[in-house]
Amino acid sequence: MQSLDFPQLASVAAIEKGFASHGYICSLEIATAVYLAFQLRKPILVEGPPGVGKTELAKTAAMLLDVTLIRLQCYEGLDESKALYEWKYGKQLLYTQVLKEKLGDLLQGARGLAESVEKLHQFGDIFYSEEFLEPRPLLAAMRMTEGAVLLIDEVDKSDYEFESLLLEILSDYQVSIPEIGTVKAKTAPMVFLTSNNTRDVSDALKRRCLHLYIPYPTTELEERIVRTRVPDIDENLRHKLVEFVHSLRQLDLKKAPAISETIDWARSLLLLHADKLDEDLIRTTLNVLLKFQDDIEATKPEIRSLLH
């Protein structure tokens, strides 16, 4: 297995800068994790509340390295035939039908059963060879020669059994296919796993990964993110809106607004040509930030006090 050299990942500071140039403002923790993942060739397990940019991190990493992003979305019931590989059974079936007619030609000159079988053996297991293999995301990532970013999204949504399937890939970057043998990655892909913590990911999986926890950002970091994503917005307004979102997060809500919601809100305020934050404006645009009616109702009476 070869490892590629990416100058973009030469140091923690370079990573911070590189991500920023692709519009992703990352904290020191995130940059360190990416650096370590590359240097130690370890997968990163990213946890955190929804909407803090876990998936975005992998996408940006792929952009930064200019390699393919291979994404595997996990869900309940996902199994190896959808994640790892599958045999092209239709093709196999077709070929058996076609070859049936050729069988007579092949076995010409063979006398007796033993000799025929011997002759057949010479052809090997052609039906279970690479030509009949349909690679799914995980195997596809192993086969990439120029490196790849593999994103295994929401791994907590999959079943425990599926986690065990991942273990071999994550620790050795290889896949065992009973009929063929072991497929080793030509170049170790950079692997990101994300989890929303709907259930605990198993210890075995955690052990094989670096664990990155992305919390809600600090006001300062979030302001920088909004500045990068919505550059046209007025500086004062930006400051105000980020502060407001932060105070919203202190409330007891079903779903606190995440960074993606802050950005959406900033964009909508920009569209509405707002130049300052007042109560009415917030009330009418609150549905951009909060996605549950209960939350919106609970917040409305609080808006005035949150603003000050």
Binding site: L28, E29, T32, A33, Y35, L36, L45, E47, H211
Partner: peptide, 23 residues
Amino acid sequence: SVLGYTDRNVLRAGLSQALAKTA
């Protein structure tokens, strides 16, 4: 060995990612 000891914050972040695996 990868991070060295030059930046305490970086080292802390790195070690926490390798050792501590829940919030």
